[in-house]
Nucleic acid binder design. Structure first.
Lengths: 312, 312
DNA sequence: CTGAAAGCGCTAACAG
DNA sequence: CTGTTAGCGCTTTCAG
């Protein structure tokens, strides 16, 4: 592989002049430029990114930590991030975590080693206070309300949409509501927001017997319905964390000659459109794009988007 | 940020000795090691990856080119790659292509610039001969039969499973078969393999009126069924490129009071299990793991796996 | 077991 | 407009 020095030597110019034409800088004479470009082409030269990155002090990678990739939340967020990254010539490095704190800490250490320019946590097992400590080594963005922690964040404000959804269910005379949610941690922000909204609308805590966590797909929804109907044969209403999950529930009811239940999806996937379900749009794609933008900026900032309850 | 020099100075040892303890090499006295580690801890030092990579001549990133990420083929393959990469301390860089040849060429150029150690093409728009030219700059792995091209490959041999599937349909007295496939290019290897198998079993070309490409999801299947049934109201059998797609077709039939059609899925997703559909397992996760392994190896190799037709 | 010194390939003052 | 030179921070011979 030829180096910039080879180009300099062979073209009769210095490395700095070569560097200038490489980076399309001003102050290069036409003849110099022409001669150097000819040699570059002739020697099939391309600059070495590793050297460039070292010299510049950072590379063009941004790490995206995500627990897994089979829920639309992560997919849509990731797509938004990739879209923005692609436009800016940055690379997205996928960092799987499974919510493992040791793994997440290791990613933070890698940020410190300058393996990435910035880190986006789509979700996390580790404490926000730990993330905050590492912001000195590079921009860190999380995708939830950071509260009092000094961390940049891009997230959607869900409560109002949840409230609207439960009001809708109440207006439709829902008696018992199956709650199909994401993480199994009762402490997750989503879980809390949902139960709060439920509380406000129905003036009571949701029945924990009717709550199921860990929902990711059509199949999960199918199984959860099976499980809940066994406990509560008259169950006819579900609040779910994804349109596909809702579709799975519906399928279970269809397959077992039960009346189609009242359903609410989330993520505004195509299935809610096809099946004419109410859904909640958290704008994850947009969120992802914004998260990337914040990741590249140097100052602390918090952006909140509003979730939307959408009728079919 | 302290550098290795700071550690050397403060500990009273030389940079090379510090480097040795950093890399757990032999030939370091106990006292030296202890003293140096103390200073490292005290100064909160971590080595800079950019410098390390330049010195070593390569980084620990492998690029994965994929057209999009909403088909299980790519998801499962990617999961396999990530699983293997994670175990070896490598990073996976996501490279979206949309089958755009200019974009793919740019990724190859980035390989040349040493932005990645290796490149895996899960699919590609660019010619295999072009990929072959770039193998001189780093390992390149493709996920299909490379034919006579000198490119490492990891792929599944699909024809026998396709044959078995069509024989199954024939045995079940299928008259007309809707063919729901992936890419719209009639030239794609999959498309060719499917029509070949069809040809062998039925002694005729599949009806192009009943072929639809670009299938990625449940919804796509739903829509395709709608479209095909319009053309051919008696259509009662579908060969699909994914279990979810098959599930979508089934849903359409259910929603329109049509008898449940004879279906064949692919990818062995959970939906085929739940809906008791025959499916084809191409072992994509395993393929992904192997593709990564080959990407790290230095010699040319081609690994073929066998797809399996699976009855419910 | 330890250290000096020469790179890795590029960028960016700074002096002409 | 062009060239010299000093880094960026680490690894790795090669002598001690």
């Amino acid at each position: 592989m030829p180096t910039i020095r080879d180009i300099a030597r062979k073209s009769g110019y210095s490395v700095s002049t070569v560097s200038r034409v490489l980076n399309h800088q001003k102050y290069v004479s036409e003849p110099a430029k022409t001669a150097i470009e000819a040699v570059i082409k002739q020697l099939d030269y391309v600059p070495n990114s590793l050297a460039r990155d070292l010299s510049f002090g950072q590379n063009k990678n941004i790490g995206v930590v995500l627990p897994h990739n089979d829920h639309p939340y992560f997919n849509q967020l990731l797509n938004g991030i990739m879209d923005a990254a692609f436009s800016s010539g940055y690379h997205v490095v996928l960092l799987p975590s499974e919510y493992n704190q040791a793994v997440e800490l290791d990613y933070l250490e890698q940020l410190k080693r300058k393996n990435f320019t910035a880190l986006i946590f789509t979700s996390h097992g580790i404490a926000l206070s730990v993330l905050a400590e590492y912001t000195r080594y590079g921009q860190i963005v999380c995708c939830e309300d950071p509260g009092t922690h000094h961390i940049s964040a891009v997230y959607s404000h869900r409560e109002p949409a949840y409230l609207a959804a439960f009001k809708y269910l109440k207006a439709h005379k829902a008696q018992q509501i199956g709650l199909l949610l994401s993480r199994n941690l009762a402490q997750s922000p989503t879980w809390i927001a949902v139960t709060n909204a439920y509380q406000q609308v129905f003036n009571c805590q949701p029945d924990s017997e009717l709550m199921v966590g860990g929902m990711r797909s059509f199949e999960d929804g199918y199984r959860a319905a099976e499980q809940l109907v066994e406990k509560q044969p008259t169950l006819a209403c579900y609040f779910t964390n994804g349109d596909d999950i809702a579709a799975g529930v519906r399928q279970y009811h269809l397959d077992h000659q039960l009346p189609t239940p009242l359903l609410i999806g989330q993520e505004k996937q195509l299935s809610s459109f096809l099946l004419q379900l109410p859904t909640i749009d958290h704008h994850f794609f947009t969120l992802g794009q914004k998260a990337f933008e914040v990741a590249l900026s140097n100052h602390h900032q918090v952006c909140r988007f509003e979730s939307e309850f959408i009728l079919p």
